[in-house]
């Protein structure tokens, strides 16, 4: 088995409050292997985006990493000094944000922004950087790239802008891209194009992607493996096909059932009763136990860790005996 590219071990992110601490990420552990696309799903507030922010070192203070380790190959990156982290960002780990409107600078042309990024990370002359920028735009599917490169962001449509953002992320030839809801602000028809570009580019460049989204359609389409998050913890990790077709954790089962089907006609959607707990009121034991239909005594007392089963890893006591 190949070495993981990124390895997150027991990551804890806390937000101090006046008297207490809110634990936003609670012992999150997962790996990303070179060239793979790992999906991160969960409801709003589950900690998906926070995981991405913690990895790339962009946690908003007072949030901070309280425990755990993040390894990028042989380098531990969770405690790097600011200047070293700054160098690493964009070069080895890049980020794609949700809203292409706000992630591009409106008063600089696309050329300015791409060339700046390229020259920050790679030793390129102005001429070479421009040529490379045009090549990148061309690869992400912007028609007439050599002409459009001198346009401003407002002259592009939403889908085209997100392509530019992908080109920007790829400029430093990173090993890992964290894509935080890259298609949420786009139409379904454009979404398909963007996912395709992302998949193709990552394949061509051998870049691993952590794809944060709440859209199961995007997950099913793009990912190799999926991690399901609930209340700051990982509920289940597994192969995408297993998660979609044969989910193990009762939460994942409910989540999959709540999506309206296109192939079958159902009268009522499966609904998970209640809502995700607030961070200051996470129940003891398994965080999902008050909403779970299959809970028993142990769920209320002991918190389940990820258990390796034949299918994948799941944090649920139902599978305790099955660990392999």
């Amino acid at each position: 088995m190949t070495e993981p590219l990124l390895s997150v071990r027991d990551l804890v992110v806390e937000f101090p409050k006046r008297k207490t601490r809110l634990t936003a990420l609670d012992h999150v552990t997962f790996d990303i292997y070179p060239g793979e696309i790992l999906g991160m799903v969960g409801e709003s507030g589950a900690g998906k985006s926070l995981t991405g922010a913690a990895i790339i070192g962009l946690l908003e203070p007072p949030g901070h990493i309280a425990a755990g380790e993040i390894w990028l190959k042989e380098q531990r990156i969770d405690k790097l000094p600011y200047e070293q982290m700054r160098r690493l960002r964009g070069k080895r780990i890049a980020m794609i944000f949700q809203d292409p409107l706000t992630s591009l600078n409106p008063i600089l042309t696309i050329a300015d922004q791409l060339i700046e990024t390229l020259q920050t990370h790679l030793p390129l002359s102005d001429k070479d950087a421009r040529a490379r920028a045009i090549q990148l735009l061309d690869e992400v599917g912007i028609p007439a790239a050599s002409k459009r490169i001198d346009d401003y962001p407002h002259q592009f449509s939403g889908g085209m802008r997100q392509r530019v953002v992908i080109a920007l992320a790829l400029a430093g030839e990173p090993e890992l891209i964290i894509a935080d809801e890259p298609t949420t602000a786009l139409d379904v028809s454009v979404q398909a194009q963007i996912i395709d570009v992302l998949k193709r580019m990552c394949h061509d460049y051998g870049t691993a992607v952590m794809l944060v989204t709440h859209d199961m359609g995007v997950i099913a389409e793009a990912c190799d493996r999926v991690a399901v998050m609930y209340a700051g913890r990982i509920a289940e990790i597994g192969d995408v096909r297993q998660i979609v077709k044969d989910p193990q954790h009762p939460y994942t089962q409910g989540l999959m059932g709540s999506i309206p089907s296109l192939t079958e006609r159902v009268d009522r959607l499966v609904q998970i009763p209640g809502s995700m707990p607030r961070l200051d009121a996470i129940p003891a034991g398994c965080a999902f136990n008050p909403r779970c239909t299959q809970q028993f005594d142990r769920c209320k007392q002991q918190r389940p860790d990820l258990i390796k089963t034949k299918k994948g890893q799941v944090a649920c006591w139902l599978y305790d005996g099955e660990s392999s």
Binding site: V188, A192, M216, G217, V240
Partner: peptide
């Protein structure tokens, strides 16, 4: 054709052209 195949039924999602 552009709907993502979230059930993984094996349906091929076709590329949408233009905007």
């Amino acid at each position: 054709d552009a709907i993502p195949d979230h059930e993984m039924s094996g349906r091929r999602r076709k590329q949408v052209t233009g905007e």
